[in-house]
Design a protein around this nucleic acid. Structure first.
Lengths: 64, 64
DNA sequence: TCTTTATGTAAAAAATACTTGACAAATTAT
DNA sequence: ATAATTTGTCAAGTATTTTTTACATAAAGA
C-alpha cells in the first residue's frame, strides 16, 4: 500500500523525489518505491527520511 | 551503539531473544544483532518487534 | 511550442539483511 | 555441582534492498 503520509510530508517541504533522495543519500528510485509502497526499507533510511522532513518514525511509518 | 530500549522492553515482557524472534518470525541471531546494535534492520521487522513488545517505533527506534 | 523538470517503471548488478548451523561463556534452576 | 537455558559470536549461504542505467509520460516554464 502506498505511503501517502510520506508523499504529503515531502510535498509539505516542496521537495522533489530527487531532492529528498539526495538529502537521504539514496537514489530517486528508492524514494519512489517507498512512496509507491511495494517495499521494505531499512530503519536507517526511514530515520534519514524522517529527519529530512522533520517528522518522526511514528508519523511516517507507524500504523496501528 | 546498543539498543538498550529494546533490551529493556523485551525484559519487561520476560521474553528471551528466542521467544521474541519466534514472535517476529526471524532468527535469534537477528534479534541479538539488533540489540547489539551493529545493524540496520528493515522497517517491517522493526514494526513486528514493536507490536510483539507493545511499543511504537518512536519508543524503540527513534533517537533525537 | 520547445525545453526543462518531475514522476513512474523495468532489468541487471551490487550491497547488505537475514538464515542456518555451530560452539563457547554466562545465567538460572534443580 | 550440574543440568538446562540464555546469550554472544562466527562463517557461509540465501533473500532482499538499493544502485545504476535507461526509457516513457506528464507537468511547468520560457
Amino acid at each position: 500500500m502506498k505511503n501517502l503520509r510520506l508523499k504529503a510530508a515531502r510535498a509539505g517541504k516542496d521537495y522533489s523525489q530527487q531532492q529528498l533522495a539526495d538529502l537521504c543519500g539514496v537514489s530517486r528510485q528508492t524514494i519512489n518505491a517507498i512512496e509507491k509502497g511495494d517495499y521494505n526499507p531499512t530503519i536507517n533510511l526511514c530515520i534519514a527520511i524522517c529527519k529530512a522532513l522533520d517528522k518522526t518514525l511514528d508519523e511516517l511509518f507507524w500504523e496501528e
